[in-house]
Design a binder for these strands. Structure first.
Length: 511
RNA sequence: CGGGCCGUAGUUCAGCUUGGUAGAACGCUUGCAUGGGGUGCAAGAGGUCGUGAGUUCGAAUCUCGCCGGCCCGACCA
């Protein structure tokens, strides 16, 4: 039997969903747990999350926010306070109804733990924290001088999903949720847009994922929000994924939680609130955006290791000297600064077959692999392998040159990944004018085993919620966003209603 | 919550139709060889066959209940 030509089978074009799962497994990022829908995030995946977390947290701090932590359990009654919100999350809430277990001996000698101590009021495990944070805000806000209140929390949340997929949709996931309260609507809207921009920048610059910033239509809006802003990315099967959202909540939640303050005119007023979040779904988005048929490809800025040094030790007697050279190189590299941080370098000293070790780091997506063996030491050179090139590509370069150029090289890889993702998106974004065109665009040629097809369709739209929901049901296509850029603003007529339209919206199949 | 399928080694699965007490591949351990490449050979560890009952001299295999999971629909950061 011949070796597969790629590390991942099936390849992307053969079976994209299966490919995705195999990449997660091959890169050792996460696995399914015994609890359906819940994942174990393994060190390589969690290291990635830690970098995302640290870099985003810096941006939150720069924009004036502080971190706090609120309870996992939310009184059921809190969720009843905002009708639209309650309805939006009702079908995916885990409910805690008991607070103790009682050991009961069974006839067969085993012991069963039986829940007892039923709670007078059940708790909901937070699907999001607007309500409980709102209750805290109501206590904390008394005067306009207490505003704005700019809080973020890093936490886990639970939404009882029927179709879990590692990172993309799990019952429990990690995220950050920002919650702010403001004196005026303008200020709150400004905050909503600011954080939307922070997300757009982060996706683009740190994760090398181009996004279309825009606003959600009524049908896709966060339950209880007046406006929801989103960053939409296209991944390699040309579907859209919502990578981050920022909500202008108006006074809806302030009224529900009674967040009132005494204003400048000695007038009692309700605060204006916002909320915004990104989740571990970002990791799934990165996988689908960047990974290839040999496994993960990590943007250097968030890679847990940016450089892995692989000692080549063909002879036992030169082994110690090679390892020492590798360690020395690692120390030198770690002293380099790039994107505001020291380089993250790992020396893989494990005594396993060289090829297996090399492939492991390819599959994990490390941006740069450096091989260093006796011959390189003699010639004062290193062998450089870039993850964004083929698995066999290898450059022998003088060590001094490599040390001089290494940060430029990482930047080049980072930029190249963004360019590549951008090109894919542009190639599959089209202006369409009629329903027929749209249906053709989103219909696979092979119905039995659909190939990768479709993309983003930019279309004139003047329909309402009902028309949109009908389209979504009939054609499995939704409006991802009403995009913000000038390039989308043009006169036209809605392809469905024939009404005039000033702007094209983005239609796509989505995750 | 409706329709289809499946529970056997760490993983993926074979064995079940035609009952006779457990197999493969990968992974793991050890040794030898190999050494700019996911290597070869050898030895080894690992399973009360989801669970309870029934039929039988005998059940992974047949029957029934229960539990768990997967896929397709309604819902989704």
């Amino acid at each position: 039997m011949s070796q597969p030509s790629t590390a991942i089978t099936p390849r992307r074009e053969e079976d994209f969903p299966e490919w995705y799962q195999q990449v997660v497994r091959a890169a050792d990022m996460a696995e399914n747990s015994e609890v359906r829908g819940c994942m174990v995030i393994k060190p390589w995946g969690y290291g990635l999350w830690e970098n995302i977390q640290r870099q985003l947290d810096e941006k939150f701090k720069e924009t004036g926010h502080v971190n706090a932590y609120f309870p996992l359990l939310i009184p059921l009654s809190y969720l009843e306070k905002e009708a639209e919100h309650a309805e939006g999350f009702a079908t995916e809430c885990a409910v805690v109804t008991h607070h103790r277990l009682e050991a009961q001996k069974q006839e067969d000698g085993t012991t069963r733990m039986v829940p007892t101590g039923e709670l007078a009021e059940p708790f909901v495990i937070r699907p999001t924290s607007e309500t409980i944070i709102g209750a805290a805000f109501a206590r904390w806000v008394e005067s306009y001088r207490d505003l704005p209140l700019l809080i973020n929390q890093w936490a886990n949340v639970m939404r009882w999903e029927m179709r879990p997929r590692l990172f993309l949709r799990t019952a429990e996931f990690l995220w950050q949720e920002g919650h702010t309260a403001h004196e005026t609507a303008e200020e709150a809207m400004q905050e909503t847009r600011l954080m939307h921009q922070v997300y757009a920048d982060f996706l683009t610059q740190h994760l090398a994922i181009p996004v279309i910033p825009g606003e959600k239509t009524e049908a896709e809006r966060f339950p209880g929000a007046l406006n929801t802003f989103t960053v939409e990315a296209m991944v390699q099967d040309r579907k859209a994924i919502q990578a981050g959202t920022s909500h202008f909540l108006g006074q809806n939640f302030a009224k529900a939680a009674n967040i009132q303050f005494l204003g400048r005119e000695n007038q009692r007023e309700f605060a204006w609130t916002t909320s915004w979040g990104v989740s571990t779904r970002l990791i799934g988005t990165m996988i689908m955006a960047h990974a290839d048929d040999d496994g993960m490809v990590l943007p250097p800025r968030v890679a847990p290791h940016q450089i892995v040094i692989l000692p080549v030790t063909p002879k036992a007697e030169t082994r110690d000297a090679v390892i020492e050279s590798c360690e020395a190189l690692a120390r030198t590299l770690r002293a380099h600064n790039w994107a505001g941080q020291g380089l993250r370098v790992h020396v893989d000293k494990r005594d396993i077959a060289g090829g297996a070790r090399n492939w492991e780091w390819i599959k994990k997506g490390v941006p740069l692999r450096i091989e260093l063996g006796p011959r390189d030491i003699e010639k004062r050179s290193v062998a450089v392998c870039r993850r964004d090139q083929g698995p066999k590509a290898k450059d022998f370069v003088p060590k001094e040159d490599f040390l001089r150029d290494v940060t430029d090289l990482l930047q080049e890889i980072q930029d190249g990944m963004l360019t590549r993702a951008q090109a894919l998106r542009d190639e599959h974004t089209h202006r369409l004018e009629t329903l027929e065109e749209m249906v053709a665009f989103f219909t696979p040629k092979n119905g039995d085993k659909p190939e990768i097809h479709g993309g983003f369709a930019l279309m004139h739209w003047a329909g309402g919620r009902e028309e949109e929901e009908r389209l979504s049901k009939e054609h499995k296509v939704t409006i991802r966003c009403i995009p913000m850029g000038d390039e989308y603003a043009e006169e036209g007529t809605c392809f469905l209603t024939g009404k005039p339209s000033q702007r094209r919206v983005v239609f796509a199949k989505s995750y």
